[in-house]
Design a protein around this nucleic acid. Structure first.
Lengths: 141, 141
DNA sequence: TTCCTTATTGCAACTTTTTGCAATAGCATA
DNA sequence: TATGCTATTGCAAAAAGTTGCAATAAGGAA
């Protein structure tokens, strides 16, 4: 759980607190390595911290995302998944079989600059999901 | 409601049916001009078609999106909104004040080609939402 | 027009997510 | 180490979204 404790100073510096619930959720995400749904996270977290509630999981994930410790991504269907904030990346997901792959942010960097100058907005978060058909599913068409 | 009736042949050609519920939902979206949440759509639709249910609204929106008559977009927070399918476009949304603007698909066309050749996926749907700070909210920082 | 097939709807029960509020517990300060 | 402020949690209730199934109705064929 040390991995999670490392985040404490970041939170305190902003006037927030490190709690067992936050530690546990960070720990779960840190060790899963992939993105998880809130329900998945709740199921894992309750094994490590008896009594944690779903309410807390939802609120904590939103909080951690706002503060840049985790990242949220929508994978179609209007549900969010969460992963620990690592290098910036995006996803491409197959509409047919659900397979996914990561896309490095470098590929989108130029587009981001164009969007910023065209819109006047300063782009902050960067996760984007693209949808399509993976190579295998294209064959089966 | 003629606007909605125009879609009937498209559906029939695929073996689907035009129903009062679908007409009403298309009518609502067609005249709103902006994207609406399923609940908004339900509230509007029930005024025009007594007895329509929320279940039907959710299912119909998903159906219409699959068939290309409407388009779904996530605007952060993991909830989908829907709009009538017009020209291809994307959104930029301000994380601070919630203001939005449209981005024409032409700006992303090149990126899409790059992504396709880098990933092997064929990109199908195209709606993407970017998040950032609008010009006004940047000033207030 | 009437009949028939089956796509579509509504109902009811259920799962997922959100919200308000009182009780709890981090952690800065003394 | 003890104290106080207030960020955070859990509970309970509500809102939003989903699912299975029987009843209904669109629209092609007779």
């Amino acid at each position: 759980m040390t991995c999670a404790a490392d985040y404490a100073p970041q939170l305190r510096a902003r006037g927030y607190r490190m709690t067992p619930q936050r530690m546990t959720i960070l720990h779960v995400l840190h060790h899963s390595g992939k993105h998880l749904s809130p329900v998945d996270i709740y199921e894992q977290a309750r094994k490590e911290l008896h009594g944690i509630t779903e309410t807390t999981v939802y609120r904590t994930l939103e909080f951690l995302a706002e503060n840049g410790l985790v990242r949220s991504a929508h994978m179609g269907n209007g549900h969010l998944v969460y992963e620990i904030a690592r290098h910036e990346h995006h996803h491409i997901k197959c509409r047919n079989c659900g397979s996914e792959m990561e896309v490095d942010h470098a590929l989108l960097a130029k587009l981001y600059r164009q969007l910023e100058s065209a819109s006047g907005y300063r782009l902050t978060d960067s996760h984007v999901t693209f949808f399509g058909l993976c190579p295998d599913c294209q064959k089966g068409e």
